[in-house]
Design a protein around this nucleic acid. Structure first.
Lengths: 143, 143
DNA sequence: ATGCGTGCAAAGGCTTTGCATCGTC
DNA sequence: GACGATGCAAAGCCTTTGCACGCAT
């Protein structure tokens, strides 16, 4: 995504376009998997952008509130990870060896939500599905 | 589950049967949904069992290590929840209104894991599926 | 008797917040 | 110029840990 698009995005949501905010969104847009606040912080340092970790958190909070970013609690890591909200329904495949996260785009439970809705009388608004396992290189090292 | 069974369970795993440990297991066995360490702590106080919160955590850790208990990170709550390990594959339906957790026993993604295994060359060892929505009573109050 | 279990207090890690200052609109 | 954004430091929350004491086997 280009810089003007990001600015446009922020404007639409009523958020100011600061260099910090844009850089955070830019980093997230370029990642195809969720990352922790600290990783964003470190990437910004690499990019020679001076920022405070609490500012990262505050921006992530606002961006999540405006639905530009999604905040996730995946197992296997005890902190939150964040990703750019592509408005695509996604699942994750997490390697228990190296903690690498892969995004999966297809969803096997379309019909399941409806089934549960009728069974429980809940209104289902979403779901979270993560797969756990070992990636090819961790499989080699373990066996 | 009866007290002797719990003791037997602990013994088999090489764990001493202290009154604390047995009470924690007993509480978890009786719950049909996962709860936080603090809730266990509070229930024990109600039962007039004096215990320190860190002891609760330490016991949960050992019990999870021995696979008698499962430690879960569900979204919507920023702390861990624990449940007795019934050796049943389970999913959860979490009410976004009142945070109530319902356990679901059927699993819609049996074949999906295999599909992903062949697609990604990962070795899949498990998955986590949670549904989110609003329970009947929260539906009423919101609408 | 030995080693695991416990209480207490303190530390740890991630995240949030208060306050004064700075930057964007 | 107004109000949101930021840095810094401190606090908050959940969880873990060190150490001395107590209890189950």
């Amino acid at each position: 995504m280009k810089k003007p698009d990001i600015q446009e995005n922020l404007k639409k949501k009523g958020l100011k376009s600061t260099k910090h905010r844009m850089a955070i969104l830019d980093i997230l847009v370029k990642k195809d998997h969720p990352i922790a606040a600290e990783q964003i912080f470190l990437e910004m340092q690499k990019m020679a952008i001076s920022i405070n970790l609490s500012t990262v958190y505050r921006n992530l909070e606002v961006l999540a509130e405006k639905n530009l970013v999604t905040k996730l609690a995946l197992s296997g890591d005890d902190r939150y990870v964040y990703e750019y909200n592509r408005m695509i329904h996604r699942h994750y495949l997490i390697c228990l060896g190296c903690k690498k996260i892969l995004a999966l785009e297809d969803c096997p439970i379309k019909g399941y939500e409806q089934q549960i809705e009728s069974e429980t009388d809940y209104q289902i608004v979403g779901h979270k599905l993560d797969l756990y396992g070992y990636c090819p290189s961790c499989r080699k090292n373990n066996s």
